[in-house]
C-alpha cells in the first residue's frame, strides 16, 4: 500500500544521504522523495512516497526515528493529507498546434511557461493522477523532456497529526 511519510530532519550536511541510505539498507522502497525548508529554522521537511504493508511501515517509521538527525516522523494516510506534485513537460509544438495544446491543458489549470519555435513547456501542479492524465493527453504531440518534483504533502486540518513512534 502506498504511504506518504513526512520526516522532519535537522538541516545538516548528509541528512538526505542518511535517510536515503536507511531506505536502501532496510530494503524499503522509495517512489519519490522531496526536501525543502520547514516551518522551523534549522529543520527541513522530507516527503517520501513509499509502499509497504503495515509491518513494513511500522519499521520505516521506527528505523527513521533511530536516526539522530530525524526529529519527527509522520505517516500521512492518503485521505488525510494534501498531496501535490509539480510537472514541467516540453512538448513538440509547431505554431499551428500551440492553440490546440493550450485548449487541452486549460481544464488542468496548467500553463505554458516557455515557447520555442518547435516546442513549448507546460507547467502543471496537482495530484499524481492529474499529472499522469495530462502527460497522456500531451503524448501525441511528442514529449521531448519531462521533469517531476516528486510528491510533497502536508496533513490536513489545523491539528498537527501526532507523530508516530517519536
Amino acid at each position: 500500500m502506498r504511504h506518504i511519510v513526512s520526516v522532519l530532519v535537522n538541516n545538516q550536511p548528509r541528512v538526505l544521504a542518511r535517510v536515503a541510505s536507511l531506505f536502501g539498507q532496510r530494503n524499503f522502497n522509495i517512489e519519490s522523495i522531496s526536501v525543502g525548508e520547514s516551518e522551523e529554522p534549522g529543520l527541513s521537511r522530507m516527503v517520501i512516497v513509499t509502499n509497504g504493508d503495515a509491518r513494513t511501515m511500522e519499521q520505516v517509521t521506527k528505523q527513521l526515528n533511530k536516526l539522530i538527525d530525524v526529529i519527527k516522523v509522520q505517516d500521512l494516510s492518503a485521505d488525510a493529507a494534501v498531496e501535490r506534485e509539480l510537472l514541467l513537460v516540453k512538448v513538440g509544438a509547431s505554431p499551428s498546434s500551440r492553440g490546440e495544446i493550450a485548449g487541452i491543458i486549460e481544464p488542468f489549470r496548467a500553463s505554458i511557461v516557455d515557447v520555442g519555435t518547435h516546442s513549448l513547456i507546460v507547467q502543471v501542479t496537482g495530484e499524481r493522477s492529474k499529472l499522469d492524465a495530462i502527460i497522456e493527453l500531451l503524448r501525441p504531440y511528442g514529449i521531448k523532456e519531462m521533469a517531476r518534483t516528486g510528491v510533497t504533502a502536508l496533513a490536513r486540518g489545523s491539528k498537527v497529526k501526532t507523530p508516530v513512534h517519536s
Binding site: R14, A17, S21, Q25, L67
Partner: peptide, 14 residues
C-alpha cells in the same frame, strides 16, 4: 569515512 560508515554507526560526525 563518514559516508562509508553511515549504515554501520549509530551516528557519525565530520
Amino acid at each position: 569515512i563518514t559516508g562509508i560508515t553511515m549504515p554501520i554507526t549509530k551516528h557519525n560526525y565530520l
